[in-house]
């Protein structure tokens, strides 16, 4: 069973909404000043891929597109049990939107591991948050995809089928698909393992291969800013202002009266 996972490095300060991570003038995230971490959604991708490998045998290949700094997340993946890692890096990729990124990743997958069985992505990234890259890769590779997978029920190697549970807003879907397939897995599908001293040392010494646009046969017109139809009009930091009113119920004021005050207040704020 050959498993390919697509993971991403994101900037941590986005979580804290600190202003300096956002370059409003250039309408982009300022990765140079931000602390870079593994996309939190991708922790579960790594764990799930390694679990499948441990159960069914095979190999897990991790791919990420990004600057050289992104190598650290590939090493993290190796420390958790991923077998090989590729960094897809080229100055020509700069400014790629979800579409161009999906194109680059699909080219990389075709180049590195044409005989893949399962591709796993996170549902979305912390920074872009589009949730489109996974499904777009599947379209470009012309394979089925199942998003928001919350459990892999079974995999049948002989029949080349997979049965998964998809999390929906109002319940669950049980879906069977042919293999090869692309899955996007939700947070909490598993509990990611801790790394050991020995696996950390292996990952430090492991070789991460670096490929550029030419290596993966990417069409220069479909990558970077040129290949990105998305144009960001405005990028800004939103600050929430809270106005907390605490009110204790006294004997004279009943619960109903307090609810009444709350409703009136929400009405004045035009929330209801």
């Amino acid at each position: 069973m050959n498993i390919v996972i697509c993971i991403k490095q994101v900037s941590k300060l986005i979580i804290e909404s600190t202003i300096n991570t956002i370059d409003s003038r250039m309408c982009r995230v300022n990765r140079e000043t931000a602390k870079l971490i593994l996309n939190p959604f991708d922790k579960y991708v790594i764990e799930e891929s390694v679990r499948i490998k441990e159960k069914m045998g095979g190999k897990v290949t991790a791919i990420t597109m990004g600057p050289y700094k992104s190598e650290s997340i590939l090493r993290k993946a190796i420390s958790k049990g991923v077998d090989e890692a590729f960094l897809i890096s080229d100055i020509a990729f700069k400014g790629s939107d979800a579409l161009a990124t999906s194109y680059v990743l699909s080219c990389a997958i075709k180049h590195i591991r044409r005989d893949y069985d399962i591709i796993i992505c996170g549902t979305q990234s912390l920074d872009g948050d589009t949730g489109q890259v996974g499904p777009s890769i599947a379209e470009m590779l012309d394979i089925p995809h199942i998003s928001y997978v919350s459990k892999i029920e079974s995999i049948d190697i002989d029949k080349k089928t997979i049965k998964v549970i998809r999390k929906m807003e109002d319940g669950y879907d049980i879906i069977r698909s042919s293999i090869p397939v692309l899955l996007t897995v939700v947070k909490g599908i598993n509990t990611p393992r801790m790394t050991s001293f020995k696996s950390n040392m292996i990952s430090k010494k492991a070789k991460v291969k670096i490929l550029n646009a030419f290596d993966i046969n990417a069409d220069i017109k479909k990558i970077g800013l040129r290949g990105s139809p998305t144009k960001v009009a405005k990028l800004l930091t939103i600050s929430y202002s809270y106005d907390i009113i605490s009110k204790k119920s006294t004997e004279e004021e009943t619960c109903d009266q307090i609810i009444d005050i709350l409703i009136r207040r929400l009405f004045n704020m035009k929330i209801i």
């Binding site: 790394t195 950390n200 040392m201």
Partner: peptide
């Protein structure tokens, strides 16, 4: 050494994530 730094990182991870 590199190995000692890795030992620290391994222990730190458990301390923060689990303990």
């Amino acid at each position: 050494s590199d190995e000692e730094k890795t030992l620290i990182a391994t222990a730190k991870n458990i301390a923060i994530e689990k303990m």
